[in-house]
Computed example of a mutant assay.
Amino acid sequence: MKITTGHLAEKSGKWYAVINLYDADGKRHEKWRSLGLDAKKGTKTEANHRLNEVLEQYNLGDQYLHEGMSRADKERNRIADMRVEDYLAEWLESYKGNITKSTYTSYKRYMDVHMIPFFKKMKIKVKEITGDEINEYYAYLRAKGLKGTSCQRHHSLLHLAFKSAMKRRIIPTNPVDQADRPKSVQFIGNYYNAEEIKQLIDCTKDDPLHIVIVIAAYYGLRRSEVIGLKWSAVDFVGKTISIKHKVLQDEDGVAGYDVMKTKSSYRTLPLIPVVEQALIAEREHQAEMKKAFGRGYCKKYEDYICVDAVGELIRPNYVSDHFPIVLRKNGLRKIRFHDLRHSCASLLLANGVQMKLIQEWLGHSDIGTTSNVYSHVDSESKKLSAEAIAKALSNESTAV
C-alpha cells in the first residue's frame, strides 16, 4: 500500500488537510478535508499536528481503503458489516419483485417469527456467519417443534439469501453450504383407491365443488391450478387441456397469476372424455345460472371454470374448508383435498404408468420428487420384481 501523504492549505480563512489519494489505476487525486481551525497567526503548528493525525488515520488503512473504494465496493462493505437479521430483512425487500405475493408473505413470516428474533440475539455480522451458526438455527427450529420438511424450507430461504450475498462478492462462500441440511421423514400421503374416487365423484354431483373434485381427481392438479383453470385453456376440438394459470389467496383476497410454480408446471394434457362431459355440463349449468340471475350474475370471472352459482370465483380456502364437510356428510374416509393429487398418482402407478410419465402429468420439475413421494405405492413394479426373483430361483432349484 502507498504511504498516504498530504500538505496544509489555507482556504477562506480556514486550515485544510489536502490528502493525496490514488485510485485502482494509480491515478492521484486530492481530497480536501477541513481541520476545523481558523488560519490565524500562531495556529499553523496546531494545524500541522492535526494534519499528521489525519494522515495517521489514513495510513492505518481503514480510511484510506474507504476513500479509494468504488461505490460498489463501499456497498459490499456496508452489507458485510450488517447484522444478519438486518441483512435478511433488507434482502427480502429487494427480492420481493421476483416472487409472488403469497411467497413473499410466507418468507416474511419465516423471518419475522423465527429468523430475525434468533439472529438478533446472536449479534453476528454477515461476514462473520458460518455453518455453525446456521446449524444452531436448525436446532432452535427443531426445539420449537418444527418438522424436518418445515426446517428444509427455512434452509432453502437462507441459502437463497446468502447465495445473493455470495454472488455480489460480499462473502466468499455460502455459509448454508457449510451447514447440515435438515432431514425429513419420508412423506407418505393418504389416498383413495379407484372405488373411493368414483364414490366421491358420484355423491358430489349437486355440490359446488363437483367440477373441482372431478378435475383434481383425474389430473392430480394442485388446488391453485384447478381454481386457475379457464375455459380458454380447454380445447374441445383438439381435445387438450392446458395448465398455465393459477389462483392464490391471501389476507387481501384472491389473485390470478400466469407465472406457475416451476417451468414443468406448464403442461398440456389430453382431454379425458369423462372430464370433457363434466366440463360441458358445467358450462351449460353456468349459462343457465347467468340467465336466471341476470344482472346479479358476476361477470368478473366469466373465463374461469370453477365458479359458484352466481359466478363468483370459488376461493382456494373454501375448497380446503368445504372438502372435509363433503366427506363427513357422505360418510367417506377422511383425506385432504391435496390427497386427490396423491390418489391420482397412486392409481397411475398401480396401472403400470412409468414414473417419468407421472412426473410430467403432475408437473414435477424433478423426477426425484415424484419417486420420493410416490415410490411406496408402486405396487405393480414390486409385484413384477417379486415374480421375477421367484421365477429365477425356481429355475435354479429345478436345475439343482
Results as ranks from 00 to 15, higher is better:
residue 109 R to E: 04
residue 199 Q to I: 01
residue 325 I to Q: 10
residue 343 S to Q: 03
residue 388 A to K: 09
residue 33 R to N: 08
residue 178 Q to A: 11
residue 65 L to T: 11
residue 241 I to N: 07
residue 286 Q to I: 15
residue 329 K to G: 04
residue 397 S to L: 15
residue 266 Y to W: 13
residue 334 K to M: 03
residue 34 S to D: 02
residue 284 E to L: 03
residue 133 E to L: 05
residue 380 E to M: 14
residue 70 S to V: 00
residue 327 L to A: 08
residue 322 H to Q: 12
residue 299 K to H: 08
residue 341 R to Y: 01
residue 216 A to Y: 08
residue 206 D to R: 09
residue 153 R to F: 09
residue 205 K to H: 14
residue 331 G to M: 01
residue 317 N to S: 09
residue 355 M to G: 07
residue 4 T to M: 13
residue 196 E to F: 07
residue 74 K to T: 05
residue 199 Q to L: 04
residue 114 H to V: 00
residue 191 Y to A: 10
residue 293 F to N: 13
residue 162 F to M: 07
residue 72 A to R: 12
residue 35 L to I: 15
residue 196 E to D: 04
residue 111 M to K: 11
residue 217 A to P: 04
residue 142 R to V: 11
residue 52 N to M: 14
residue 155 H to T: 11
residue 22 Y to E: 14
residue 342 H to F: 00
residue 104 Y to K: 12
residue 331 G to Y: 02
residue 112 D to M: 02
residue 182 P to A: 11
residue 56 E to W: 03
residue 179 A to N: 09
residue 278 A to Y: 15
residue 258 D to Q: 02
residue 263 K to P: 01
residue 324 P to H: 12
residue 293 F to G: 12
residue 261 K to Q: 08
residue 195 E to T: 08
residue 73 D to H: 03
residue 270 P to M: 13
residue 372 N to D: 14
residue 332 L to S: 05
residue 11 K to C: 06
residue 213 I to V: 12
residue 232 S to W: 02
residue 309 A to T: 13
residue 259 V to E: 05
residue 329 K to Y: 01
residue 274 V to I: 07
residue 37 L to W: 09
residue 53 E to N: 07
residue 287 A to E: 11
residue 22 Y to G: 08
residue 161 A to T: 08
residue 346 S to N: 11
residue 14 K to I: 13
residue 270 P to V: 14
residue 387 E to C: 14
residue 122 M to T: 10
residue 127 K to Q: 07
residue 143 A to W: 00
residue 302 E to P: 04
residue 44 K to A: 12
residue 133 E to T: 05
residue 70 S to K: 00
residue 96 K to L: 01
residue 90 E to L: 09
residue 289 M to F: 08
residue 390 A to M: 12
residue 42 G to M: 09
residue 241 I to V: 15
residue 123 K to A: 10
residue 332 L to A: 09
